[in-house]
C-alpha cells in the first residue's frame, strides 16, 4: 500500500524566504497540510502546474524568487480546452498577498469562500 498524505505541494526555485514563510503560514492557519520541495529550475507557473499534479488535493503552488503562482488540477481556461490557468499569480506580491495565496489554496480544499484582497 502506498501511503500519501493529503497535502498542498509547494515547488520552489530560489524562493524568497520571507514570502515563502507567509504562504506556508496562510496554509497552516487554515489547518491544511503542505509539503515543500525545491527544484533547480522552472518559473512559478510551470512549477505550480507540476506541483498540482503531484498533490493529492490537486492544489499546487510554484515559487521562483518573489514570483508565485497557484494552480488547481483540471481548472481549464475554457470549456473543452486542455489549457489550464492559474487561480492566482503574482510577480512581486506583498506580505498580505502571499499569506492570502496560501490561505486561499487551503480554502479551496475546505470549500470555504476565498479571501479576495481588494
Amino acid at each position: 500500500m502506498i501511503v500519501k498524505k493529503p497535502t498542498i505541494v509547494i515547488y520552489t526555485c530560489q524562493a524568497d524566504e520571507t514570502l515563502l514563510r507567509e504562504v506556508c503560514a496562510g496554509i497552516e492557519e487554515e489547518g491544511v497540510l503542505y509539503e515543500l520541495a525545491s527544484r533547480s529550475f522552472g518559473n512559478a507557473d510551470a512549477l505550480s502546474l507540476l506541483a498540482c499534479d503531484t498533490s493529492m488535493l490537486g492544489v499546487g503552488i510554484g515559487m521562483n524568487g518573489k514570483s508565485m503562482s497557484l494552480h488547481i488540477k483540471g481548472m481549464n481556461v475554457n470549456r473543452g480546452s486542455d489549457e489550464t490557468m492559474a487561480l492566482f499569480a503574482y510577480e512581486a506580491p506583498s506580505v498580505d498577498e502571499a499569506r492570502g495565496l496560501g490561505a486561499n489554496g487551503a480554502r479551496v480544499i475546505k470549500k470555504r469562500p476565498l479571501r479576495l484582497l481588494e
Binding site: 488547481i72 481548472m75 481549464n76 470549500k111 469562500p113 476565498l114 479576495l116
Partner: peptide, 8 residues
C-alpha cells in the same frame, strides 16, 4: 470551471 470568485 466555475468562476473562482463564486467558490464557496
Amino acid at each position: 470551471s466555475i468562476d473562482p470568485r463564486l467558490f464557496g
